[in-house]
C-alpha cells in the first residue's frame, strides 16, 4: 500500500469520477449488445427481442469467409511472430552480437510507427516487388499474414524481453552447474520461466491481428479480406443490425481471450495483468 486514501469530499469526487469513467467505458458496449437483440431494422431502436441478426451472421457467406480469413491469419501470424519474437528477445537479453543496437532499434520501430504509415509501406512494397525483382504478388491471405507478422514480432519481443529481464540469470547457470546442456537449461529452466511472457505476447499478437483494419485494408485482395475490414466497409455504407451482431461476436471473442488469460495468470500465481 503506497498512497493513503484521501478523505471526505475529495474521496467522493474521485469516486464520482471513477463512476463516470466506467459508465463511459461500458454504456456504449452494453447498449450495442442490447440492440443486437432488438427486432427492429433501425439500429438503436428497441423493437422486442430477437436472435435473427445472429442467424443472419451465421448464414451470411461473405461474413463467414471473412471470419475464416481473420481466424487463420491471426493464428498463423501469431505462431510465426511468437517464435521469431521470442528468439529475438533471447538474443537481445542474453547475448552480445554485432549489429545488436541496430536490431534493437529496428525492433522498436513497428511499435511506434503509425498504422497508416505501415499500411502505406506494405502496399508500396508488395506493389513494387513486381517492378523491382519481377515478382508478382497477389494480394490476399499471404500478404495480410506477412504484414501482421511484421508488426507482431516487435510486440511479442517486448513482452518476452520484459519477462526475461526479470528472470534471475543465475537460474540458467545453476542448471548448467547441475549437468544440463545449454539446450536442456533452456528447455527445463528458461522456457518455463518466460512462458507467461510468451503467452502474454501471443495474446497481444492475436488481439492486434484481429483488431487491425488499416494495414489489412491496404494489403487485402478482392475475395480475401478479414472480418474487421469487411465490417469497416459495411459501416462506411451505414449501420445495420447485422453489423451489431457481428460486432458483439467480435467483442465476445476479445473479452473471452482476455478473461482466459487473466484466469491463467491467476492460476499461475499472478503477476500484473498489463504485460
Amino acid at each position: 500500500m503506497s498512497v493513503a486514501k484521501p478523505r471526505g469530499a475529495t474521496n467522493t469526487a474521485l469516486g464520482l469520477n471513477a463512476f463516470v469513467v466506467y459508465l463511459f467505458f461500458y454504456a456504449p458496449i452494453l447498449l450495442l449488445v442490447l440492440f443486437s437483440f432488438s427486432d427492429d431494422n433501425i439500429v438503436g431502436r428497441w423493437g422486442g427481442f430477437t436472435l435473427d441478426w445472429y442467424r443472419d451472421f451465421g448464414e451470411n457467406d461473405e461474413v463467414q469467409s471473412a471470419l475464416s480469413v481473420s481466424v487463420r491469419v491471426a493464428i498463423i501470424s501469431t505462431l510465426i511472430s511468437v517464435v521469431l519474437g521470442t528468439m529475438a528477445a533471447l538474443a537481445l537479453e542474453r547475448f552480445r552480437f554485432r549489429g545488436e543496437r541496430v536490431f534493437d532499434a529496428l525492433l522498436y520501430l513497428p511499435v511506434i510507427i503509425p498504422d497508416v504509415t505501415m499500411a502505406v509501406m506494405m502496399l508500396i512494397f508488395f506493389t513494387s516487388l513486381d517492378d523491382l525483382i519481377g515478382l508478382q504478388v497477389t494480394k490476399g491471405f499471404s500478404t495480410i499474414t506477412l504484414s501482421h507478422v511484421a508488426f507482431s514480432i516487435s510486440f511479442v519481443s517486448i513482452v518476452v524481453r520484459a519477462r526475461l529481464a526479470g528472470m534471475n540469470q543465475t537460474l540458467e547457470e545453476a542448471a548448467q552447474d547441475l549437468y544440463a546442456t545449454r539446450w536442456q537449461a533452456f528447455r527445463h529452466v528458461t522456457f518455463p520461466q518466460i512462458m507467461p511472457g510468451i503467452a502474454g505476447g501471443a495474446l497481444l499478437a492475436l488481439t492486434l491481428s484481429l483488431d487491425d483494419v488499416v494495414i489489412t485494408q491496404f494489403v487485402a485482395g478482392p475475395g480475401s479480406t478479414t472480418l474487421p475490414v469487411y465490417v469497416f466497409g459495411l459501416i462506411r455504407r451505414g449501420v445495420t443490425p447485422l453489423i451489431n451482431a457481428v460486432s458483439v461476436v467480435m467483442l465476445g471473442a476479445s473479452i473471452t481471450l482476455v478473461l482466459l488469460s487473466l484466469l491463467a495468470q491467476r492460476a499461475r500465481g499472478g503477476s500484473d495483468p498489463v504485460a
Binding site: 534471475n168 543465475t170 537460474l171 547457470e173 545453476a174 527445463h188 529452466v189 520461466q193
Partner: peptide, 8 residues
C-alpha cells in the same frame, strides 16, 4: 549459489 538460485 549466493541467493540459492532454486528453480521457482
Amino acid at each position: 549459489f549466493q541467493n540459492y538460485a532454486l528453480f521457482p
